[in-house]
């Protein structure tokens, strides 16, 4: 099987995965900056200070999208969504605004 990276599929997969991982609060790992601790998976460590999830979110969405962009052919998505692909990141940004609305209430 010949592997070929598709930027189009990477964009779609990254945006969908990012929104999902953020909504489900399921980063690949959490980082605890107070003492530099990492915790793989979904568990939360107690007593080691505040956790940071953004690195884990990026890793989860980035790695997942990279694998999908290598494995899945992009012909269909290129043909069906051409010139509407830029809406995927816009939709993901709107999901983020919705999920963070509690800060502005």
């Amino acid at each position: 099987m010949k592997l070929r990276f598709s930027a189009t599929l990477f964009l779609v997969a990254f945006c969908v995965l990012y929104a999902l991982v953020f909504a489900l609060d399921a980063p690949l790992f959490r980082y605890y900056p107070l003492h530099g601790d990492f915790n793989w998976g979904n568990g939360v460590l107690k007593g080691v200070g505040p956790a940071m999830t953004w690195y884990g979110l990026m890793a989860n969405a980035g790695l997942g999208a990279f694998v999908l962009a290598l494995l899945i052919p992009d012909r269909w998505i290129e043909r069906a969504l051409r010139n509407f692909l830029w809406l995927f990141p816009v939709a993901t940004m709107l999901v983020c605004v919705f999920l963070l609305r509690k800060f502005f209430a």
């Binding site: 990477f10 990254f14 945006c15 990012y18 969405a61 692909l85 605004v97």
Partner: peptide, 26 residues
């Protein structure tokens, strides 16, 4: 809380932009 929310949006938007760079280049 609004300041924390603004930073959270900044961080997530930057990450989404990073993920969009390969398509931007394409």
């Amino acid at each position: 809380g609004w300041a924390i929310g603004l930073f959270e949006l900044k961080e997530h938007f930057a990450g989404i932009g990073l993920g969009a760079l390969p398509f931007y280049a394409y």
